[in-house]
Computed example of a mutant assay.
Amino acid sequence: MAVDRIWSYAPDSGYAEGQDLTGFAVAAADGTLGRVDRQAGPGGMRHLVVDTGVWLFGRSVLVPVGVVTAVDTRSRKVTLSCTQAEVKAAPRFQTDSETRDPAYLTAVGDYYDSHGRT
């Protein structure tokens, strides 16, 4: 899949345009990651910032929406196609300004695209 598609929800993901996913639980293919802290999409680079709680020692991670395979509004859960290890190995998210940094977002998109997770 093209890198630009990493920033778009799959048509069959269950995401409804404009839907607020804040607070939804986030699950990787092999276990729970945390909760959606916020969502953003500067310049069309749509992503979720996930608060991992104690799983990654209180660290947040940035996940492109192209890896979202399912949005379950009833259980308030977002499921990703990637594993916990893949999320942990992604370019490290450190500051909120990175959610608007095209170079950082491009690196994240390239990482997830290269892992075939779209």
Rank of each mutant, 00 (worst) to 15 (best):
A2I: 05
R5E: 12
R5F: 07
I6G: 08
I6Y: 13
W7H: 08
S8T: 10
S8E: 11
Y9D: 04
A10T: 04
D12Y: 01
D12K: 01
S13N: 06
S13D: 04
Y15H: 14
A16Q: 13
E17F: 13
E17I: 07
D20E: 12
D20V: 11
D20P: 06
T22L: 11
T22M: 11
F24M: 05
F24G: 00
V26F: 06
A27V: 07
T32S: 15
G34P: 02
R35Y: 11
D37A: 10
R38V: 05
Q39F: 04
G43C: 06
D51Y: 04
T52W: 06
V54L: 12
W55K: 11
L56N: 02
L56T: 00
G58R: 02
S60A: 04
V65E: 03
T69K: 10
D72F: 01
T73G: 08
K77I: 00
T79M: 12
C82W: 03
E86S: 07
V87D: 10
K88W: 11
K88M: 15
A89Q: 11
R92K: 07
F93V: 02
Q94V: 14
Q94E: 15
Q94F: 05
T95L: 06
D96A: 13
S97W: 14
S97N: 06
R100E: 12
D101R: 14
A107V: 08
A107W: 08
V108G: 01
Y112E: 01
Y112N: 05
S114T: 15
S114K: 13
H115N: 14
G116Y: 06
T118M: 10
